[in-house]
Design a protein around this nucleic acid. Sequence first.
DNA 1: TACATACTGGACGCGTTGGTATAGGAATAT
DNA 2: ATATTCCTATACCAACGCGTCCAGTATGTA
Lengths: 210, 210
Amino acid sequence: MANTPSAHRSGRPKDTAKHEAILLAARSLFASQPFDLVTMEAVATHAGVSKMTVYSHFRDKETLFETIVATTSDFMIAELSGPDQGGGLRERLIAVGTAFLSVILGSDICTMAHTLPSALRANPALAERFYAAGPGRVRAALAAMTAAAAKRGELNVDDADRAADDLVSLWEGSMPAKIAFGLAGLSTPEEVRSRAERGTDVFLRAYRKD
Amino acid sequence: MANTPSAHRSGRPKDTAKHEAILLAARSLFASQPFDLVTMEAVATHAGVSKMTVYSHFRDKETLFETIVATTSDFMIAELSGPDQGGGLRERLIAVGTAFLSVILGSDICTMAHTLPSALRANPALAERFYAAGPGRVRAALAAMTAAAAKRGELNVDDADRAADDLVSLWEGSMPAKIAFGLAGLSTPEEVRSRAERGTDVFLRAYRKD
DNA sequence: TACATACTGGACGCGTTGGTATAGGAATAT
DNA sequence: ATATTCCTATACCAACGCGTCCAGTATGTA
């Protein structure tokens, strides 16, 4: 667990600015390279802090990494729980798709999310939590939305889970693979929006009630 | 480069069986864990061979890894260059999809293909080659197929590249992500076939000429 | 002021790993 | 038979990275 700077009885309190600087530097480094290549020395240097200070705020490297993952996971959940209600089906799907893609393709999380799995072969529980908080959560929500739309007669879906799978796949396209291979960088908000619209339209062409 | 066992002028020739054993062990290890965690000692032990023998067959760790990647890449190309001609459009697409998915989801390549990118941040040329030999090659072939089908009036495609992207995405679904996160293992041939058929059908529903 | 805690900077122990050196034994071509 | 090359086993080196210790200094509370 992290040593969150809390109330002290006496003495000099921990510098919360340094705490944040360490987290920021660590996030940046973990996002740009796999776990094993990130050195605690680099984290300290990048944060403008002594290595001992890093160890004073976080017990060890794994604890630091877990803290980053946990806060990132929380951020994803917060991002995705926003757009629930809205106009028509197409607009609602595009809104969810935009929120999802902006996290997956448009933030510094994206590189980390794709270097994470290979680094977490030894920690499956954490990987599962990460997946559940991200793509898994979105798919579940989308399955519910498509099922409801089918009940209203707007869509023609046999299997809601598979339909949700298809929709997410159409949104993402080949971007995750390209990012994982280092052949694509961060997407702009315009690209994200465009992908969400196009994927949604293709999805509706395949699943529309005619 | 690999020291392929070649003709000798005199003396004891290199044992090709050991050469293969080293490659097999290395492939298995590189497939199950990222580059940095694979030790040459483990390769030697796993191959039932002395560490010195490994270095006698391959100059260093990177050369060994490159050899694995190159042969794997060649294997992908060979697998995918098979199904070109066939019956109707749907059958041809399903054939290509099955060949593609059986490599991506059904062979030991799949785990390596997803641990590879994070290990190759420092070697973009190799990553690009690997991508081009796999998904890139399929996408190019599919773009040509869909463009031809559109010209024949069978499909309604505005952008052949994007259509190919959509088709591959529908084939893959969430499987690459799940594999990367260790939440899914090798797929059976039946699952591969099923995914190829379903993805193709959804694609055709979205892009059929009506 | 006195005390307690945070931070720095460097040095270091320890384990791991890539790669080398060496010595002895085994297999094969000539 | 002999030279040559392969293979093994072990010891060894250098580099690296995590985590710790320590002495000194800065900065807060009581």
